[in-house]
């Protein structure tokens, strides 16, 4: 009961946050946190719960962004363009994502990386130009709208993952992760569950892509297909804790704020310092930052007994 209250107050706080802080910069950071948390959760469903480590999420993120952008600049309002982007990303998953399940383990990982590279080069070749925000769309552009949209999508994603983690479906996904052959032996149709995980995952990635396309005023068409969009969600999920509900959220907060802090204060060495902090995190917190909570809890328990 208490925890529900806590979450509700957190959500309320975040809803009123932009009115309280009134800083465009912080609003930017909040949007980025929501964007990265969403994308990271999208990866988390497939990689963290189902154990299929995808290195090609940029493909689906990019497909969502591309679709959103075309519709939105073409005059469709953003709340229609956003789900359309997610749908496009799902269709793409049907076309190229599901066949990739023929590959297993690290073959899947690197196979999806190859798919992401194919998508990147193809988009670079087909759409070499810049996607300009038009005058009409610039009028519709407001950080506040984008924030509420990103926050809404983020909350919906976290809620979906929470529900998933408590459902039978979630259990089945975890069983595929833990031992695919054993799961198959006890009658779980692993292919089916992988497909389900991928579907949910790509829809969320498509939403995240739409938010990127809404947020970034003008960019080269290939920007959302860059390989960084495949690696960042994975890093964030592992920093926070893969296969958990809060992990990617905590990971996204730390990732965005740390990078921002380093870039503002360290100049050229910022990436180097980030790399060191990252390695230290992986070495000492193999379960991610949520692992700290586990350690605290253990101490708590031993103190009580």
């Amino acid at each position: 009961m208490k925890s529900k209250l806590g979450i509700a107050s957190f959500v309320l706080l975040m809803i009123f946050a932009p009115l309280l802080i009134k800083s465009e910069y912080l609003l930017n950071l909040l949007i980025l946190i929501c964007l990265y948390a969403t994308l990271s959760h999208s990866w988390n469903i497939l990689g963290g719960y189902c154990g299929q480590i995808s290195l090609g999420h940029a493909t689906f993120f990019g497909a969502g962004a591309l679709t959103f952008r075309y519709l939105w600049l073409g005059g469709v309002s953003y709340y229609l363009a956003l789900p359309a982007g997610a749908l496009a990303s799902l269709i793409l998953a049907f076309a190229i994502g599901f066949p990739s399940f023929k590959m297993k383990g690290h073959y899947f990982s690197i196979g999806t990386l190859a798919l992401a590279m194919i998508a990147l080069i193809t988009v670079q070749n087909l759409l070499p130009g810049v996607s300009f925000i038009t005058e009409a769309c610039l009028k519709e552009y407001s950080l506040l709208t984008i924030y509420y949209l990103a926050f809404g999508v983020g909350v919906a994603t976290v809620a979906a993952v929470y529900a998933l983690s408590r459902s039978k479906l979630g259990l089945a996904l975890v069983s595929v992760r833990e031992d695919e052959e054993a799961a198959e032996a006890i009658g779980i149709n692993t292919f089916k569950y992988k497909v389900v995980a991928m579907s949910i995952s790509t829809v969320i990635a498509g939403f995240a892509g739409g938010i990127f396309a809404f947020y970034c005023g003008t960019y080269y068409h290939y920007a959302p297909f860059e390989l960084g969009w495949s690696f960042d969600p994975l890093l964030i999920a592992f920093i926070g804790g893969a296969g958990t509900v809060v992990g990617p959220v905590v990971g996204a907060v730390v990732f965005v704020l740390l990078k921002e802090l380093f870039a503002a204060s360290l100049g050229q060495v910022n990436v180097l310092i980030f790399g060191i902090v990252f390695i230290v995190t992986v070495l000492f917190l193999p379960k991610g930052l949520v692992g700290i909570a586990g350690i605290v809890r253990k101490k708590d328990r031993s103190a009580r007994t």
Binding site: G6, V253, R297
Partner: peptide, 19 residues
């Protein structure tokens, strides 16, 4: 659930501290 609350709180604090 308690852990979850702790972490969300920590996240909130981090954002506000940054502010």
């Amino acid at each position: 659930a308690r852990c979850l609350r702790c972490l969300l709180l920590a996240a909130g604090i981090a954002i506000i501290a940054f502010g």
